[in-house]
Simulated assay, not measured.
Amino acid sequence: MLNDLLPQNDSPIFCRVSINNDEKWVHGIITYINMEKNIAEIFLSAKYFKSYFNEGSKIVVKSLDENIETLFSGSVSKKVISIRKQAITIQINKVLSYNNQRKYERFRVNYPCRIRYEENVSYIASISDISLGGGLIHSDDLFEEGKNIGIDMFVTPKITISFTGKVIRRIADKKGGYNYGVQLVDIDDANHNLLFELIEYLQTQKKHLAQEWKMFNRLKYSVYAISIFGIFLLIFIVFASKAI
Results as ranks from 00 to 15, higher is better:
66 E>W: 00
17 V>F: 11
3 N>C: 04
187 I>W: 03
32 Y>L: 09
150 G>R: 04
140 D>V: 06
92 I>Y: 07
3 N>V: 10
56 G>Q: 05
217 N>Y: 12
227 S>Q: 09
86 Q>T: 12
143 F>M: 12
83 I>K: 09
136 L>Q: 11
73 S>N: 05
132 L>M: 14
121 V>E: 15
178 Y>A: 06
180 Y>W: 09
49 F>D: 00
87 A>D: 05
28 G>T: 03
202 L>F: 11
137 I>F: 02
62 K>C: 03
60 V>H: 02
169 R>F: 01
224 Y>H: 08
96 L>W: 06
164 T>D: 10
6 L>P: 03
234 L>P: 00
192 H>A: 06
149 I>Q: 07
82 S>T: 09
193 N>V: 12
197 E>H: 15
21 N>F: 06
136 L>G: 01
73 S>D: 06
131 S>L: 04
31 T>F: 01
27 H>Q: 04
219 L>C: 08
193 N>S: 10
106 R>Q: 03
119 E>R: 13
52 Y>C: 00
170 R>E: 05
25 W>T: 10
128 S>Y: 15
89 T>D: 02
170 R>H: 00
231 I>N: 09
159 I>C: 13
51 S>Y: 15
174 K>G: 00
18 S>D: 00
206 K>D: 12
60 V>K: 10
8 Q>R: 06
103 K>G: 13
204 T>Q: 14
68 I>E: 13
32 Y>R: 04
101 Q>L: 12
199 I>M: 11
119 E>Y: 12
218 R>W: 10
144 E>R: 15
68 I>C: 08
121 V>L: 13
214 K>G: 02
193 N>L: 15
114 R>S: 09
171 I>R: 07
214 K>A: 10
229 F>I: 14
213 W>T: 04
20 N>K: 11
153 M>S: 02
163 F>E: 02
4 D>V: 06
40 A>V: 04
63 S>K: 07
78 K>S: 12
221 Y>H: 13
185 V>T: 08
167 V>N: 04
8 Q>W: 00
214 K>H: 08
127 I>N: 04
159 I>V: 15
132 L>Q: 06
56 G>D: 05
172 A>T: 13
4 D>N: 11
221 Y>E: 08
225 A>W: 10
17 V>G: 12
141 D>V: 13
143 F>P: 01
174 K>W: 00
211 Q>D: 14
10 D>R: 10
216 F>A: 07
77 S>W: 00
96 L>Q: 09
29 I>F: 01
1 M>Y: 07
136 L>C: 13
82 S>A: 05
134 G>N: 11
231 I>A: 15
76 V>E: 04
230 G>K: 03
222 S>D: 14
138 H>M: 10
23 E>V: 14
72 F>P: 01
199 I>W: 09
238 V>I: 15
183 Q>T: 08
112 P>E: 01
241 S>N: 14
83 I>F: 09
84 R>G: 02
34 N>Q: 07
222 S>G: 09
228 I>P: 06
109 V>G: 08
55 E>Q: 12
97 S>M: 02
3 N>R: 07
89 T>N: 08
101 Q>H: 07
94 K>D: 13
2 L>F: 14
240 A>H: 11
19 I>Y: 02
111 Y>G: 01
35 M>I: 11
112 P>G: 02
42 I>Q: 05
84 R>M: 00
76 V>R: 05
203 Q>I: 05
182 V>M: 05
220 K>M: 09
65 D>K: 06
82 S>D: 08
113 C>P: 01
